[in-house]
């Protein structure tokens, strides 16, 4: 029954990839289509409002500077609101201004689509901050990621010198994808009993006669975009484990689909742009294969239970239920954990710190690879980066100049791809080592031994992959963690985005090389295998020593 639940959700995703991918392709193809009729009037109004009459194509450099400047303005505005929230409207619960380093961490966290929360939403943020900073950033960070991914796709599949107009892509991402989808999902969640109100905290009498405060607020609207934008976090500190965020198994499936469908449809969008949908299905197949592998690891590890608990004679028939919600059980908890770390959403419906060592390894590995569907747009860009690397390695093996989609891959592209690939493990492993070397880092570790290593490794991996979930036993709301994870989130977001836009800008100007019988094909089963192999080999070479010290050592000690 558990496996059947999982298979049904996967089947829904596979069935919806093509129609959703077709819609997304039409949104960004800039050819006249039906979606113009529905949303064109709103976009024309916005363009007039921001003085964007003409929307010329941008070179990759102009595109990168545009998205960077837009993000800087949003960061400045958000930081100001968090530091002044006490004096701003919609603060019925009298919440104070946020501390400086925590504001720094929070604003970076939400701008980079990480949504790592070193605070608890119901006590740390006013309703105004929840809506004007947190929710606003959830839309804009997702739209930024989506826009960059589409620009990258245009670069590797198109001709000319430009890769689209950032502001046009950014506006369209909001008007045609995220806002309509968020409205629909919000209404569905409200219908399924998720609160949506500006009323203050409820004070109720318990059965024992004591007084208890129950936090409520505009939950449903935040809940919808936090998943649709693969943002993560939550209105409440417990995220989607909280019954007001995720009351039933049905809302759980809706939330899983909300965060999974758009990233899953992007490979198909890439195939449409490449005028060969087989290219997209090869990438989708590689992502889904990796996903099913990691999901199986999580599911069967949790189902087996915790050996240390089992020897105590505790009933293990339900699996390892520590830190999980009874209404979801092992299947829906495992699937949620696998999807939230694959799509780098980072919201949780069970506590990842209490996953079994191998279950925790599954979630950790998905973030380390950062290509298994991935966050809004970023996962596809990373996977295509590995595809180009795979083509390059195969070219070296047969002594032929590598080509990808009819363009020669030269040292300039490989230099940029090497930086993007190597930056990810560096910004995870270097701060992890620093945390162990300093009292500031060690002082926050609440579990001795291997699990303590996993806690720190998970925190920086989650930050670098812009995921945002955590092994929350780590006491991480300190200036040391706020600043170091803040910097890791920034580097994890922008280095690969800028480098890959540069690759797109380089490829878009190149002459097409006609396909011959000797051309290495990237739309068949052989390349599907090479792509998976490239991802796993690079991942193992960079991260295996660290995960042996953490989750694998912990698993072996459990017996």
């Amino acid at each position: 029954m558990g496996i059947l639940q999982i298979l049904i959700v996967i089947a829904i995703v596979v069935l919806l990839v093509k129609p959703l991918g077709t819609y997304v392709y039409h949104v960004y193809s800039n050819d006249p289509n039906k979606t113009d009729k529905w949303f064109g009037w709103l976009e024309r109004f916005i363009y007039r409002l921001i003085g964007l009459k003409n929307r010329p194509g941008m070179t990759w450099k102009r595109y990168a500077v545009s998205f960077l400047l837009t993000n800087i303005v949003l960061v400045a505005l958000g930081y100001l609101i968090l530091r002044l929230q006490k004096y701003l409207p919609f603060n019925p619960n009298g919440i104070e201004n946020m501390e400086q380093t925590l504001s720094f961490n929070t604003i970076i966290s939400f701008m980079t689509n990480t949504n790592l929360q070193h605070y608890s939403g119901e006590t740390g943020l006013t309703y105004f901050s929840q809506m004007a900073v947190i929710m606003m950033m959830m839309f804009t960070s997702a739209a930024t990621g989506f826009s960059v991914a589409i620009a990258f796709i245009r670069g590797i599949t198109g001709k000319g010198a430009t890769i689209g107009n950032f502001f046009e892509d950014f506006v369209k991402s909001h008007t045609r994808i995220f806002i309509p989808a968020a409205v629909v999902v919000t209404l569905v969640l409200v219908a399924l009993q998720v609160p949506q109100t500006l009323d203050p905290v409820l004070t109720v009498k318990t059965l024992e006669g004591a007084s208890q405060n129950i936090a409520i607020g505009p939950v449903a609207s935040l809940e919808s975009i936090k998943h649709l934008g693969t943002n993560g976090g939550g209105f409440f500190g417990a995220n989607s484990a909280h019954p007001f965020e995720n009351p039933t198994p049905l809302t759980n499936v809706i939330e899983i689909l909300s965060m999974w469908l758009l990233p899953a449809s992007l490979p198909y969008v890439y195939g449409r742009f490449a005028k060969n949908t087989k290219q997209g299905w090869v990438v989708f197949g590689a992502m889904m294969t990796l996903f099913v592998g990691f999901l199986s690891l999580i599911y069967f590890s949790e189902l087996r239970g915790n050996p240390a608990m089992n020897v105590l004679g505790i009933d293990a028939s339900q699996g390892s239920m520590e830190g999980k919600e009874v209404r979801f059980g092992i299947p829906q908890s495992s699937l949620f954990s696998a999807v939230t770390t694959a799509a780098t959403t980072g919201t949780v419906n069970n506590m990842h710190d209490t996953l079994t060592p191998l279950g925790g390894l599954g979630t950790l590995a998905e973030m380390m690879l950062n290509v298994v569907f991935g966050g809004k747009g970023v996962g596809l860009v990373n996977m295509l980066m590995y595809a180009i690397l795979g083509v390059f390695l195969c070219g070296l093996m047969v002594g032929r100049t590598p080509e990808f989609l009819g363009r020669k891959i030269e040292p300039r592209e490989m230099k940029l791809i090497a930086i993007a690939i190597l930056a990810h493990p560096f910004i995870i492993l270097a701060p992890t080592a620093i945390a162990f070397l300093t009292d500031l880092g060690q002082g926050s570790i609440t579990n001795p031994g291997s699990h303590g290593i996993s806690q720190v490794l998970y925190e920086y991996t989650s930050s670098a992959a812009n995921n945002g979930s955590g092994f929350e036993g780590l006491a991480d709301n300190t200036p040391f963690w706020n600043l170091t994870t803040g910097l890791v989130m920034l580097l994890g977001r922008y280095i690969s985005m800028i480098a890959m836009l540069a690759v797109a800008g380089s490829l878009v100007r190149k002459q097409w090389v006609p396909e011959t019988i000797g051309t290495f094909r990237t739309d068949n089963g052989l390349f599907y295998g090479i792509l998976i192999g490239t991802v796993l080999i690079i991942g193992a070479l960079t991260f295996l020593p660290a995960i042996v010290l953490g989750p694998i050592a912990e698993h072996l000690k459990l017996g």
Binding site: W60, K61, A64, L68, S103, R412, I495, A499, G505
Partner: peptide, 30 residues
């Protein structure tokens, strides 16, 4: 005062990203 440090840190990091864009531009051109 801590606010100023946070703003300077953010400005410094975003400045580095702009420098990275310029450097990537050189790699693409050269």
């Amino acid at each position: 005062m801590l606010d100023l440090y946070m703003v300077l840190l953010l400005a410094g990091v975003f400045g580095l990203f702009y420098g990275f864009i310029v450097w990537c531009g050189r790699v693409v051109e050269e």
